[in-house]
């Protein structure tokens, strides 16, 4: 350990602002990029599911329509 106490460690020999600013901003930037990638992933999969559900609903509705109009035709 190069520092005598936690206080010394945080003070960084007087350069605290520069060192912690550097490490802090870098950490924030890297964390942000990872979180953004992960959340975009979830969002894309969710959109794909919703789109699929929507297509399924549309197909079912069309089918119901077709059956209905067919039965009407054969009925009369």
């Amino acid at each position: 350990m190069q520092f005598d106490s936690l206080h010394d460690f945080l003070a960084m020999g007087g350069y605290a602002l520069y060192v912690w600013l550097s490490f802090g901003v870098s950490l924030l930037a890297l964390v942000w990029v990872v979180l953004d990638s992960a959340s975009t992933h979830k969002k894309l999969l969710r959109n794909a599911r919703e789109e699929q559900a929507r297509q399924a609903r549309i197909a079912a509705a069309r089918k119901a329509q077709a059956v209905h109009s067919e039965s009407q035709q054969t009925g009369s």
Binding site: F3, G13, V19, F23
Partner: peptide
Amino acid sequence: GSIWGLAFAPQDYQQGDSFRIIYIH
């Protein structure tokens, strides 16, 4: 690497502790 560089690596004789930024830069 960050913890080693911040807490355990020696100081630079000229730049003191500010040189620890090297470990990201």
